[in-house]
Amino acid sequence: MLSCHQLTKRLASGGHELVVLDHVDLQIGRGEFAAILGPSGSGKSTLLGLLAGLDRPSSGEVHLDGERIDNLDEDALSLLRRRKVGFVFQSFQLLSNLTALENVLLPLELAGATDARVRARDLLEQVGLGERTHHYPAQLSGGEQQRVALARAFAPRPKVLFADEPTGNLDAATGARVLELIADLREREGTTLVLVTHDREVARLAHKRIHLRAGRVERIEEGALA
């Protein structure tokens, strides 16, 4: 489903070049749940960005759903993300001037879905926000905002969901609830999940744990630990 080969990202930083990712090779199967682990600065988010087509590598290849994406232009990447990819972020990234429902509707409308409203309401019900569809992000708690973000991410039925520290800004209990929801939705929709975290507890549920250190794959663990 998702793979990369010799993936490298270099950034210019204060006059010299910084190697953020160094020749990374990975394979993630369809419907799999992969966790990317590592300390701060190990290149987790960079890897996620490259795999999701948000950013372009300095060298190496990325394949998503049978399509090579590292050499696509901005427009083609946009279309790819629109059709195949969903996101959940640590800082929620809801659009502050849209209500919960409108935030979820946005990708559906973009895809031209005919049942957009029904689907959006249904998803908000599933994440337990059926009563709060007309609230603005500022009127919701962190956990609620992240649940809206989840509904938005799953709305267009993406093939792959990328989650960047989705529980990082939440307290332990709320975080656990959000993780449960992600797992439930993934099961139901059959979505491949790539999740970045530095929380080993979170990673226990994953089929595959990819440990990064200083931009390199340190080791890969297979099989859920739960």
Binding site: L54, E74, D75, S78, V85, Q93, L95, N97, P107, L110
Partner: peptide, 16 residues
């Protein structure tokens, strides 16, 4: 800027 980044991440093309 942040909102635009989100829209772009969701799959909006710049011209959209």
């Amino acid at each position: 800027t942040q909102g635009v980044a989100v829209l772009r991440a969701i799959g909006f093309r710049p011209r959209e």
